[in-house]
Structures are given as structure tokens and as C-alpha cells.
Amino acid sequence: MELPGIAFYIVAFLTMGGIYAILCLALNMQWGFGGLFNAGIAGFYAVGAYTAAILTSAGSSAHLGGFDLPIVVGLICAGIASGIVGWAIARICVRLKADYLAMASIGIAEIIRLAIVNEEWLTNGSLGISRIPRPLEAFYSGRAAEVVFVVFVWLIVAVTFLVARRLQQSPWGRVMRAIRDNEETAASIGKDVQRFRTETFVVGSVFMGVAGALSAHYFKFFSPDATEPLLITFLAWVMLIAGGSGNNLGAIAGALAIWAIWSLTEVVTQQLPPDWATRSSYIRMLLIGLLLQFVLQRFRSGLFPEKSPKLRISREK
């Protein structure tokens, strides 16, 4: 491969890596801060993707919208829509053991998938939504546009990171950790456990929606088949645990590292004999499944283990 080709590949890698980094930071808010298990990440991602697609794509008779709104408006609305779904599910489940939320989140992802496939007036069903714009499309084209988009994605990654870090260092973040590590103690000093958990789940859902919206802009087309739901959910989990749950930097590092491994396995499985080529994607899944088990057993604190921010209490004399 020539140099421009490699550079182009790296840009594509960083774009998807950035989208996964946002997803991973969002999951870190739910799991790393709050100990809440979300098995329906793909559902929140899809809500965000479709909201952005409907709001920002050019007008179409095949589905609701497109309203041709600015991309930033689309991103914000995608976050809000996804946050509302997260709020509804959190309200029901946060008072119970984390396993119940895990089961219900599978359900919500399934319902969202059903709605997307069946409500053709809204989403154009399995045909999907096309002509989704990218930022500054009018000014750049070709490879320059790819570079503009990767910058845009990483700007959002930076925003997400700053929000996550601010949340983690704030008194709110301290309460979240207290609740995660010992619910009874936190409750005994008067913290409203359910409210805090709902909040962290909603904030996480918002950013999952934003990640979905970005992917819709990146693909410029979104349909139920555009993504493999289980793969998204699963990769996000592997990334966070490998990177270090509870650590925002770890979430980004994990996302890039696992996305690199995932991309490399594609290169490797392409070298297999043709008989095996059709099966290569399943073998990749198998490897990533085994990687998760390895990380869970041997490498649980991840690349960047969680560090509690220093307490900055002004001591009075």
C-alpha cells in the first residue's frame, strides 16, 4: 500500500475508533461510575442515529423528515431522544439488582429494532435513510472531507471526555462511586441512590445517542442492516473493560486498542484460504469473545486502572 493509502486507512480507523471512544466513555458513565449493566447499547445508538438522520437529511417522501436541519441540532436532539429512552428504562430498573437492568436493556434494544423495521413512515423500514449530510460538506470533498470528519468526531470525543471528567471529579461523581461500591452506606448518609443511578444512566444514554448520530453522518446512510447490533454492544464492553472501567482515559485507550485489534483480525482473516474466508467474520467474533474472557479473568482493572480523583477539601484551621 502506498503512503496516501495508509494515511487514508488511518483516517478511517480513527473515525470509527473515535465513535467507539464516545460509546465507550458513555458506557463508562453507566458501568464505570454507576455499576449499571447495559446490554442494549445498540438500541440507544440506533435511536441517536435515526433521530439525527431524520432531522438532518434532505426532504424525502419515503419517511418522516428529512428536515434538513443543521448537524449540531441533529446531534443534540439525538442525545435527547436517546436520553429519554434511557430515563424510561432506568426509572423501572434502578431499584433492582443490576441483572434486572441487564435483562430489560436487552428488551429495550429489541423493541427499538422492531419499531425501526416496522414503522416505515418513520424510518423507511429496512430500506433505511439515505442522503445524510456530513459537516462542511459544501466546502470539502474527497479525502479532505474525510479529514474534516475525523476532526469533527474527535472534537466530540473531547467534549464527551471533558464532560465525563468533570462529572467524575465533581461531588456528584464521588456520590456515584460511593453508591457503586456500597449502596447501603451511601443511602445511610442520605443519598438518594435511585436518583443518582437514574442520572448517570441517562447521561450515558445521551452520549450513546450522540455516537449513533455521528455514525449515521459518517456512513451517510443508515438502515437496520447498516450495523450489527450485538457487535456494537459487545465491542463497547470489551473496550471499556480492557481500557479500564472507571477511568475515562482508559475508555478512550481501550476503544482505540480493541478497535485496532478488531481491524487487524480482519487483515489476518483475509489471508485465510477461500473456504474459510466466508467464516472469517465468525472467527473474529470468537476471538473477541475469548479476549473478553481473558481480560475479565486476568486483566480486570484494564490498561488504565481506575484512580479516584484527589480530594480537594479546604481544611479550615
Partner: peptide, 20 residues
């Protein structure tokens, strides 16, 4: 909850073995 995550991974492992 760690076992729940592991079982999520086992689901994927079992299925990809069947698919392969």
C-alpha cells in the same frame, strides 16, 4: 455482575462456534 458480562461473552463464543 462480572459473571453476567462473562456469560454475555459466552453467548457470543457459542454462537460463533456454531456459525463456524
Amino acid at each position: 455482575i462480572y459473571t453476567v458480562i462473562a456469560s454475555f461473552g459466552v453467548a457470543l463464543i457459542l454462537r460463533s462456534i456454531v456459525q463456524t
